[in-house]
């Protein structure tokens, strides 16, 4: 009887270890399919513009190559999945590992390693585009060499990024190559306009919820009860991280008049022109005039309702009294 239990365990291990490898591949394909933000770490500056990483550039035993975020859709909720790709150099061999997590800092020890591609010599990660069924799609291409029966052969894996029609690398980030055209909306341009692709596999199985990332608007439009999402000081230096993309109904900008185009941004609508409210402004053309001298009580560019006086010296921005 002693041998039955180990045999049973062995068979289970055998079966589920095969299953594990299969699921790993499925997961990373699906997660990248729903990715919507990429941050490239240690981007070599002297490689061609589409190369994200080459093993030749690895200097440290462990390097994070990229971080990404993906949208997943559970039965009732949406959530963001965070992931990263790590390259490890052990005893002259490279190991690439995909990590995913539903926590913000995805490359920490709490991560789950979901896929390890072992011993990939000469690997290179590039951003390419491909036309599939007439639809232009961006993809990450992982090229590597591997010895097969004593012969070194070239291989590649494609990870499709369906949330990008055409992507480009700018300042270490993967961004949609967007052309602003008249009558076309500035919406995120995915492979198919108006479609958000998700990380479906994780979405169906994920149960853990993350805190809301959307800044909910309070039912007020009066300072100081508004939620501030970005701010620049008089010297045009940012005072806080810009979180305005998280606002539920966009944001409104209040210019303090000292830093041209910038000021303080609040989520939602800011009533302007009324008593103790910031003045309304008429756009950038006025402010970008060569003779623009900041807020001026004599200027028609800053509006207060009839009977109110513009106070340019009010803090933190001009107010109507």
């Amino acid at each position: 009887m002693k041998i039955i239990f180990p045999t049973f365990l062995f068979l289970f291990f055998l079966i589920f270890s095969c299953d594990k490898h299969f699921k790993q591949d499925v997961v990373i394909d699906d997660i990248l399919m729903g990715s919507y933000e990429f941050q490239l770490i240690n981007l070599p500056s002297d490689v061609n513009k589409n190369a994200i990483y080459s093993s030749e550039f690895q200097k440290k035993p462990e390097e994070v190559l990229l971080r990404f975020k993906s949208l997943s859709l559970t039965d009732k909720k949406m959530k963001t999945i965070y992931g990263c790709l790590i390259s490890q150099l052990k005893e002259g061999r490279f190991y690439l590992t995909w990590h995913v997590s539903d926590l913000l800092d995805s490359c920490q020890i709490s991560d789950k390693s979901i896929s390890t591609l072992a011993d990939l010599s000469g690997h290179e990660l590039t951003l390419e585009s491909e036309v599939i069924g007439g639809i232009s799609v961006s993809k990450l291409k992982l090229s590597y060499r591997k010895s097969v029966k004593g012969e070194i052969k070239n291989f590649s894996l494609n990870y499709y990024l369906l949330n990008w029609k055409q992507a480009e690398i700018k300042e270490g980030r993967l961004l949609p190559a967007r052309q602003r055209e008249i009558f076309h909306s500035p919406f995120f341009k995915s492979s198919i306009e108006g479609v958000q692709f998700t990380a479906s596999f994780m979405g169906k199985n994920a149960s853990k919820e993350i805190p809301s990332l959307v800044i909910k608007n309070l039912p007020v439009s009066h300072y100081p009860d508004l939620v501030k999402c970005a701010e620049w000081d008089d010297q045009c230096a940012p005072v806080m991280d810009d979180k305005c993309h998280l606002c539920q109904q966009g944001y409104s900008q209040v210019m303090h008049g000292k830093c041209g185009l910038h000021g303080i941004r609040f989520c939602g609508t800011v009533d302007c022109g009324g008593k103790n409210k910031p003045p309304c402004h008429l756009g950038r053309s006025h402010i970008e005039n060569e003779d623009f001298m900041g807020c001026s009580e004599l200027s028609e560019e800053w509006l207060c309702h009839p009977g109110l006086i513009l106070d340019c010296s009010a803090k933190p921005f001009p107010l109507c009294h």
């Binding site: 933000e37 949208l71 959530k79 108006g194 958000q196 993309h245 109904q249």
Partner: peptide, 18 residues
């Protein structure tokens, strides 16, 4: 129906359907 006013997440469309 999915919407920023109903759902969580930074990539949630202002309004659409899943």
């Amino acid at each position: 129906t999915v919407a920023r006013s109903l759902d969580q997440g930074e990539f949630v469309t202002p309004y659409g359907i899943a």
